[in-house]
Design a protein around this nucleic acid. Structure first.
Length: 750
DNA sequence: CTGCATAAA
């Protein structure tokens, strides 16, 4: 194995040397299998490059994404069409029809649609590019009475599909075809076909369990098996067997991209399965001949090899997390200019969710000729972000996954091998526009050992919120419910216990009026209970601010290692309450400062300096508005609210000092079990199990010693960490939960 | 004493 020898350059760390040797060993480390993942359909046709769900390439058209208000365009007078506009749309629709007719699904239309209409449940398997998400709903529009709902796991997908289908149909978005996602409802009375997120449909179910406005519900991307999709499937089964059993004008269609349709079919009592071919180009798969030892090193080597050995086309690399991505990015930045000039200059581009939006957008920008984009991505590029122009995929075969341990009451973040289905999905990313190649940084025999499918989310998550939803729909027998996959007795009981201790469930196990309020709030039940408690303490306003901050992911950016200390110091200097009381109060302070800016430029500058997301805070404002209005709706006004003095809820008196102890006590009410007591040896022990827990380095309280702490999240990585930590007093614990103490106090006295 | 994958209401 002469070639194999050449790839073993781990011993010398000299970077230049590596590049020199790689040049001669053209994919020596890969065993070519020359198998294509998917069959190849008419890729000689030019038009075939249009794909069903080029989610991101449609982005410029999705103006609505940033629309601020949640206005329902119910007023038909609002969008009177001029005759010429209407004709233009019809013309456009007619030209689009030419392309539509080339989609694989078009051929099956006449056989498929009547069968779907006449059966209660159908399973439609359509691989990427089949056109199922855009075409099946349109075909049904003309044939069925009542509304059609199509659910999507992601907002952008719902918006882009609706935008596309409205064009094809020839109507303005929001007329016959519309969409409904959080903060943006573009539908009207005449809307017949509605694309919505899973979460949106579930909300509708909470409000109208009969789903009376729909005759047809299409659950798309069911193979992803998100918690929300699983819940929808269970509820729909209940509907079909229950209240809408005899409704001949009600049907469910489950759409999936992978071949594991049997499970869905069995779940729905052997519903018929229909297969529609996809339209991906062939992708050649190549495996590493040895097993990878250092994934970062192997990734860098493979990237350089592909860049020097392969023709034009961008490279997409899958790595488990931010840390690996940043390392590879900076290595490539140093290496790229030094490499032989006969290969394109590599432009490394990181891609992960925590990246600020403007940096994420860079993957869509064009590079100069003789340059090649190398995108280093987490799983985000597997489904959520589609980058055009990718011809080569390099797959580490790894991903990070959060696993909830109900028996320990904490979650762990693990790096694990992906499934075969996931490997296929990653591979397919190279075949969207032309034939491609996928370099897998693992051996074929390791590939064969992978699980067929990724474990459904519901099996490894905390399910407090799902169980509360079931209770809202009056499900008595939680264990025997229509779980497509049951999370298990232990996990269910743990959720029931937590809901009970939050007073969301009564002694008999049915939902309480408090639980009814909690289920409609767009936050986890624990936080919902905090909000309700805050109202009683008269600190609703500041707590809504803080909860809104907690609802936005990546509001606090994780700074690069060089800037880390600098930003931490800045945060401590800026937030006096935060330094004393912890991260919850810090969020409140940051929020107030953010709102104090009159100049946008200054505000953005400040955000960068202190390591927070400008866009994130804009989302905080939207969420704050939504939560505040829900809180108004569910309970009337509280008797001794601070805002009594101010009648206008939008006009908060910032001069009034907030009371940190009442704020923190509100949080303690929802997170009693997430508290720990300081030990003499500077460690902390949880009140529930007595396990040691450390304050996460991202916390303002990191390195501080306080009597007791309250934390929003407990994660186990290298060790047990408390994330988002606040300082509390021992008396508060005794006040709120005396039963949890006692034994722990004695440890401290020892 | 030192660091989180993704998505949704």
């Amino acid at each position: 194995m002469r070639q194999n020898k050449k790839i073993k350059f781990d011993e010398d760390g000299e970077i230049k040397e590596i590049s020199g040797r790689i040049k001669t060993s053209r994919y020596g480390s890969f065993a070519s299998k020359s198998k294509s993942t998917r069959r190849d359909y008419n890729h000689d046709s030019k038009q075939s490059s249009r794909r069903e769900d080029k989610v991101v390439s449609h982005k410029p058209k999705t103006v609505r994404l940033d629309s601020e208000d949640d206005q329902n365009s119910d007023d038909d007078e609002n969008h009177k069409l001029s005759r010429s506009d209407y004709l233009k749309m019809q013309m456009k629709a007619r030209t689009l029809l030419v392309d539509r007719k080339k989609l694989p699904i078009y051929k099956a239309k006449n056989r498929l649609i009547p069968r779907i209409i006449s059966s209660k449940v159908s399973i439609v398997i359509g691989e990427t590019g089949s056109g199922k998400s855009t075409q099946v709903p349109q075909f049904l529009m003309k044939k069925v009475n009542g509304g059609i709902a199509v659910t999507q796991p992601r907002r952008v997908a719902a918006i882009n599909l609706a935008t596309r289908v409205a064009e094809e149909y020839g109507c303005p978005l929001g007329h016959e075809v519309g969409y409904s996602v959080r903060f943006s409802n573009v539908t009207s009375k005449k809307t017949k076909l509605r694309y919505l997120t899973d979460g949106m449909l579930l909300r509708e179910m909470m409000l109208d369990p009969m789903m009376s406005k729909y005759s047809t519900i299409i659950v798309d991307e069911a193979h992803e098996r998100t918690i929300l999709t699983d819940l929808i499937l269970g509820f729909l089964k209940g509907l079909i067997l229950g209240k809408r059993k005899d409704d001949s004008d009600f049907r469910v269609i489950v759409m999936s991209a992978t071949l594991d349709a049997e499970k869905f079919s069995q779940f729905f009592e052997n519903a018929p399965i229909y297969y529609i071919e996809g339209r991906l180009f062939p992708v050649k798969r190549l495996y590493l001949q040895r097993s990878a030892d250092d994934i970062i090193d192997d990734m860098v080597k493979a990237i350089i090899q592909v860049n020097q050995g392969e023709r034009t086309g961008d490279i997409l690399c899958f790595l488990p997390g931010q840390e690996d991505i940043d390392k590879v990015t900076s290595l490539l930045e140093k290496l790229a200019p030094e490499l032989p000039k006969d290969a394109p200059l590599m432009v490394p581009l990181p891609l992960y969710a925590a990246l600020p939006p403007h940096q994420q957008m860079k993957v869509f920008e064009k590079v100069k000729p003789r340059q090649r984009k190398v995108i280093l991505s987490t799983n985000i590029a597997e489904t959520s972000v589609t980058v055009p122009g990718i011809r080569y995929v390099i797959d580490s075969g790894l991903r990070k996954v959060k696993v909830w341990r109900h028996e320990l009451g904490l979650s762990t973040l693990l790096t694990v091998p992906i499934s075969k289905a996931s490997a296929a999905q990653r591979t397919g990313r190279a075949g969207r526009e032309a034939p491609g190649k996928c370099f897998r940084l693992y051996r074929e025999k390791d590939y064969l050992k992978l699980c067929e499918n990724t474990e459904p989310e519901i099996l490894r998550s905390e399910i407090v919120s799902p169980v509360l939803m079931l209770k809202r729909l009056n499900v008595d027998d939680i264990l025997g419910w229509y779980w497509i996959e049951s999370p298990g007795k232990e996990s269910l009981f743990s959720a029931l216990r937590q809901l009970y201790s939050l007073n969301a469930l009564s002694d008999s196990g049915s939902i309480t009026s408090l639980g009814q309020k909690m289920v409609v709030l767009p936050v986890a039940p624990h936080l919902a209970s905090v909000l309700i408690q805050a109202k009683e303490y008269g600190v609703l306003d500041p707590v809504v601010d803080i909860v809104s901050c907690l609802s936005v992911d990546n509001l606090l950016l994780t700074p690069s290692s060089e800037k880390r200390d600098e930003i931490n110091i800045k945060r401590r200097d800026t937030c006096t309450l935060g330094s004393r009381y912890g991260d919850l109060l810090m969020l409140k302070e940051l929020y107030d400062i953010y709102n104090g800016f009159s100049d946008v430029g200054e505000c953005k500058h400040w955000c960068r300096e202190i390591g927070v997301s400008y866009r994130g805070f804009r989302n905080v404002l939207r969420i704050r508005k939504q939560i505040a209005s829900y809180m108004e709706n569910i309970g009337g006004r509280s008797t001794h609210s601070q805002s009594d003095i101010n009648d206008d809820i939008d006009d908060i008196d910032y001069s009034k000092p907030v009371d940190p102890s009442l704020i923190l006590k509100s949080f303690l009410k929802g997170f009693i079990t997430n508290s720990a007591i300081g030990m003499p040896d500077r460690s902390y022990r949880t009140v529930t199990t007595g396990d040691t827990i450390s304050i996460h380095p991202s916390s303002l309280l990191f390195g501080k010693k306080v009597d007791a702490i309250l934390y929003i999240e407990h994660v186990y990585t290298m060790k047990g960490y408390a994330r988002n930590v606040s300082a509390i007093e021992l008396e508060w614990l005794q006040e709120v939960a005396p039963h949890l103490l006692g034994s722990r106090i004695s440890i401290q006295n020892d």
